Computed example of a mutant assay.
Amino acid sequence: MKYFAVLLPMKDSGKSTEFRPQHLAFLEEMRGAGHVRVNGKFLDGSGGLVIYQAPSYADCEELVKLDPYIQQGARDYEIKEWEAVWAD
């Protein structure tokens, strides 16, 4: 499995507020399925970051496109393959 850092820059703050519950439920579902390792918002309000685990970029992008934030136009996304180094 590969790791991907997915930046979710703010596109529409009103939609972000409206669809936050669905977005958080989606992330919880993705965590339960083993696709999301960690997620969080940027405290400056500019968006957030999600670390996905997937076999390929294309597989990761398929998952990202299921996020209500993306589907509803609340956020843009940028995917970067990430070489994770974990603490012991």
Rank of each mutant, 00 (worst) to 15 (best):
K2I: 01
Q71H: 04
K11M: 10
W82K: 06
V64T: 09
A54G: 10
E28M: 00
V85M: 10
D44W: 04
D67I: 11
D59C: 01
A5C: 10
G34I: 04
G48Y: 11
G45R: 02
L7K: 12
M30F: 04
R20I: 06
M10K: 14
F19H: 12
I70K: 03
S56N: 02
K80W: 09
V38W: 12
E18C: 03
G47R: 05
F4R: 02
V85G: 12
E83F: 12
F4D: 02
K2W: 00
G14I: 02
L7T: 10
Y52Q: 06
P9H: 13
H35A: 13
H23S: 08
L66K: 15
L43K: 10
W86S: 06
P9S: 12
V64D: 04
S16F: 08
Y3Q: 04
V64I: 11
P68W: 12
L63F: 12
G40T: 02
E78V: 15
Q22E: 15
E28S: 05
A33Y: 00
D59M: 01
S13Y: 06
M30C: 12
G34W: 00
F26I: 08
L43Q: 13
L8C: 05
K41R: 13
A87N: 06
E78P: 03
E81S: 14
G45I: 00
L49D: 00
K15D: 02
M10H: 10
E29S: 08
L66H: 04
R75K: 09
P9G: 14
A33H: 04
P68Y: 10
V85D: 08
P55E: 14
E81A: 15
K80E: 08
G40R: 06
F42H: 07
M1H: 08
A33M: 06
C60W: 13
D76K: 07
G34T: 02
A58G: 09
Y57P: 14
G32H: 06
D67K: 12
A58P: 07
G73F: 01
V38F: 11
L43Y: 09
V50W: 09
E62H: 07
G14D: 08
A84K: 13
G32Q: 10
R75E: 11
E29A: 05
S56M: 01
E61S: 08
W86E: 07
R75H: 13
K15G: 07
F19N: 04
G14T: 11
M10V: 15
A74E: 03
E81R: 14
E62I: 00
Y69H: 14
F26A: 09
S13F: 08
A87W: 03
S56V: 01
H23Y: 10
S56D: 06
R31E: 14
G48I: 09
Y52V: 01
K11C: 04
A54F: 03
